[in-house]
Amino acid sequence: MKADPVRRERLVEVFLTAPGFVWLLLFFLLPTFNVLLISFRPSTLTGGIGEGWTLDTLQQLRNPDYPGILFRTLWVSLAITVSCLLLSVPVAYFLARCSQRWKTRLLLLIMIPFLTNFIIRVFAWKVILHPEGWLASVLAFAGLIPPGTQLLYNVRAVILVSVYTYLPFALLPVYAVAEKFDFALMEAAMDLGCNRIQAFFRVFVPGISRGLWTATLLVLIPNLGAYVVPDIVGGHSSSMLGNVIVRRLFSDRNLPHAAGLSSVLTVLVLLPMIVVILHRRRREAH
C-alpha cells in the first residue's frame, strides 16, 4: 500500500507529459529523422521518393557550387547577427536607464511594427529600395550613388532587410539582461579611473553577456535557414542554403537531394546551439 502514492504520482506525471511529448515526437523528432532517411533514397522521374537505398544524393552534394553557397550562408548570417548586436547594445543601454513610464512606452513602440505581417514588412523594403523609389532618388541627388543604381537584388539588401526583421529578437533579450544590470558598477569603475567608454566596454558589455549569447542564438540560427528575405530582396548572386533547398524541392522536384541539403543545414544549426549551451553550462558551473 505504501508505494501507491508514488505510483499514482508517476501516473499523473505520465498523463501530463504524454500528450505534448507524443505530438512533438510524431511531428517534430520523427520527421527530422525521416529527412535524414530520405536523403539515402533514390529519386523517381515523377518527383517522388523511390524504393531501396542509394548514395546518389551524397554524390550530388559534391556540386562545385555548394561550398560557395555554404560560405555565403555563413558569412551573411554572421554579418546580420553582428549588426543586430551592435545596434541592440546602445538601445538596450538607453532603455535600461529610462524611467519606468518611458520603458513601457518605448518597448511598445518597438513591438508594434513587428505585429504586422512578416511578408508585408519585407515587401515594404522592396518598395523603399526600388530603383525608381524615393530612397534611390535621394541618395542619387546627394551624389552618394550614381542614378539608376540597383539597390535591390544583392547581398547588401538581404543583410539590411534581415537586420530589420531580426533586430527585435536581439534587442529584447539584451534589454532583459541590461534592465537588471547594476549601473552603480559603472560609476564605481569610473571612480577608479576608467573613462566612460572603458566603463561601457569593460563593465557594462561583460555584464550583459548572457543576453548577448541568447541574442546570438535567436538571430544566427534562423538566418542560417533564411529563405524568405533572400528570395524577395536578394538576387541570383545572393541565394543562401535555404533558397537552394526550396529550388531542389519545388523546381527540380528532387526530394532526396532537398532532404540531403536539409540534413546539412540541420548539422550547421546544431553547431552554434551546442557552443552556446556549453558556454551557458560552464558559466552556471562557476
Binding site: L24, L25, N34, A258, L265
Partner: peptide
C-alpha cells in the same frame, strides 16, 4: 523536445513535415 523547435529554423520544420506527409 519542447525547447528545440523554438530555435530550429522554420524551413527545417516545414520541409520535415512536408516530406513526412509525402512519404
Amino acid at each position: 523536445m519542447v525547447y528545440t523547435p523554438l530555435v530550429v529554423p522554420e524551413i527545417l520544420l516545414g520541409i520535415s513535415l512536408l516530406l513526412l506527409f509525402v512519404a
